[in-house]
Design a protein around this nucleic acid. Structure first.
Lengths: 133, 133
DNA sequence: CAATTAAGATTACAAATGTAATTCTTGTTA
DNA sequence: TAACAAGAATTACATTTGTAATCTTAATTG
């Protein structure tokens, strides 16, 4: 639905990520969640929330004096779009070079391999006998 | 060797990417390569080259009046680092959600699947009998 | 040799970003 | 009710980024 055109900056992403954890959430909720990771001033977080609202990545509804924020941009939509674009730019759209790099750098663990196998199985199920694409 | 600390911006990356295609290369070489893709003014490209030099992502040696640029930052080093960091941020370090997203969005083709299988085989060869990590 | 080019160096300038501080408002408390 | 406190809104300000234009210098040409 809501096609996000604008860029989400790194700092904004951290805030959005904290909101995705659970929402609706007040500014203070977000600030608390981020305090475990970052050392951001509360004013900073509020600025970032405002910018995310302006970019239409999130919205809010008033609950008394405070706002309860919620994402307009879904996490999966965003992460898929970002990873697709990175793979396009870095690897001309192929995923295997990325995975191969992970393998080479020892970032692939047994669990990852198992999950990959699972994905492959599912893909083969859905594409059984098809020779398209 | 050369640990790159600074961020490479999007526009800078395009230039670096063009340089990776073949180097050493003069500013004009890069400008020509980019003209097929982007519609950048030559001054813009030169600015980006300068910034990449300042960031120590590339360097050059003089050949008469002109410079011949070459990367200090290797493509693979950079792409692996970028993809690792994206996966860390977006998927808490796991690769399978990324691949699953690709599968769901029909971005996985037969060739990709074959390559993934190949990677898995190699991994299993190298990790035969080992129960570490 | 003087004028013109063509490289790179320096400067420009608005928008985005990181990181807050200050101001405005309104519910709450003495 | 008057002062305060806690949210949000507005303003701030240096740095980075996108996108060039101008300046300087050295090679080339008439």
């Amino acid at each position: 639905m809501s096609e996000i055109n604008v860029e989400i900056s790194n700092a904004e992403f951290e805030v959005l990520n904290a909101l995705w954890q659970a929402y609706p959430a007040s500014a203070n909720d977000i600030i608390e969640r981020l305090n475990n990771e970052k050392e951001w001033h509360e004013k900073t977080v509020k600025t970032l929330l405002s910018r995310l609202v302006k970019k239409q990545a999130i919205s809010f509804e008033k609950e008394q004096r405070r706002y309860l924020y919620f994402p307009l941009l879904e996490r999966e939509t965003y992460t898929q779009s970002e990873s697709h674009s990175l793979i396009e730019r870095m690897f001309s759209g192929r995923i295997s070079p990325l995975i191969a790099g992970f393998a080479k750098n020892k970032h692939l663990k047994k669990d990852d391999i198992d999950e990959l196998k699972q994905i492959i199985s599912s893909w083969e199920q859905e594409n059984k006998g098809a020779k398209h694409d």
